[in-house]
Write a protein that binds this DNA or RNA. Structure first.
Lengths: 195, 195
DNA sequence: GTTAGCATGTAAGGAGTTACATGATTTT
DNA sequence: AAAATCATGTAACTCCTTACATGCTAAC
């Protein structure tokens, strides 16, 4: 079974609501996942091509006939899901598959939660949580064993990293709690205990 | 002028206190920057070789003579800074050079703060802060323009991302304040307003 | 004696960026 | 008429990981 990388999944997700062309996909992806993570065209277009080649999406040139022959704007290519693409997305969304709790993958999976069933949402949130808990233990172990070789700045860096992960776990705990109390809910719940 | 990538800088930094062999470098780097970011040997050893080739570090085989001829453990190669390496590190530490406020680079620069003068520390902290402020504006702009296309989970992801960046800015503000009030201080100051 | 940790390296390959190349449309 | 934004793509290159290949030493 062909494996679905993160970018492919994100594109499948964003195309399920409406057909888009490349430029729009890039903008929307940047907007949904935060304006950092803006991926380059050098990544996007080759990925779109691969997806066309493997039949997950199909293209529709704008005005395929000769509607405005001379003045037609530069060909914009609208991509839309094929049946195969829709099927693949459905499978992916149900599977919580290959490590959906990696840093990169988690955000994309989370952004697709509105199209994910409650059981899978819960599995992903819990998977992510336990992944972070492991990190937490490793870091605090490291901090304890660090009385030797203690440079105040290095220690502060550790402390701050630890705090960041702790907060992330708290956030997940709230989401999990909410998911359990309202499994069908479309709403992630009240904003976490704000600062 | 040859450019110094992050990994090279980190290695220069970690070798300035004592010579180490590859295995130890990897462990220490992992411990200082958090146990995530553990780099692989496939990255480390080629980098060490490049550094030897460009004269930044030099090797010393353990017990170069025939001290314990038959029972010598597998050759461990201790790396230490050359004069050129020490010079390069000093330059780098004074320069706040090529974008020390990138996500990756900042942590390494921060971990080396104990060897950095106060003025440069301040420049780096402020550079990082303004970089994050830009992000903050972009994201909150994006959030405002997102009443359309609002999916509760996507919105929550944004909100959480925003909060994370806000906290990071607060952390930097405390560090900056402390740096200004005690420019010579070796101490990053009281732990930020704890949670 | 076998597992876990110490120790060094190479080769292949993945995932992405930057820089290039091109051109239309909209706004100022 | 200049600048910004829309729009698509390729080629070269960078940085890193994974998997492989090898072997010693300490602990259980």
């Amino acid at each position: 079974m062909a494996k679905t990388d993160v970018l492919t999944l994100a594109i499948l997700g964003i195309l399920q609501d409406q057909p888009l062309h490349g430029y729009q996909i890039r903008k929307l992806l940047g907007a949904e996942l935060g304006p950092f993570r803006a991926l380059s065209y050098g990544s996007l277009y080759p990925c779109l091509r691969r997806m066309v080649d493997t039949g997950l999406i199909e293209t529709a040139g704008e005005e395929p006939g000769a509607a405005t022959p001379a003045s037609s704007r530069r060909a914009r290519i609208a991509y839309s899901l094929t049946e195969a693409g829709r099927t693949r997305l459905t499978e992916e969304l149900a599977s919580a598959g290959a490590s959906s709790w990696d840093d990169d993958t988690f955000d994309v999976r989370f952004a697709l939660f509105a199209h994910t069933d409650s059981a899978t949402r819960l599995r992903i949130l819990e998977g992510r949580r336990s992944r972070l808990s492991e990190r937490l233990e490793e870091v605090s172990e490291g901090l304890k064993r660090m009385h030797e070789r203690h440079d105040a700045y290095t220690a502060e860096l550790q402390r701050h990293g630890l705090e960041r992960v702790e907060r992330e776990v708290e956030w997940l705990d709230q989401l999990i709690e909410n998911e359990r109390s309202a499994p069908g809910g479309d709403n992630p719940g009240p904003a976490s205990a704000g600062h």
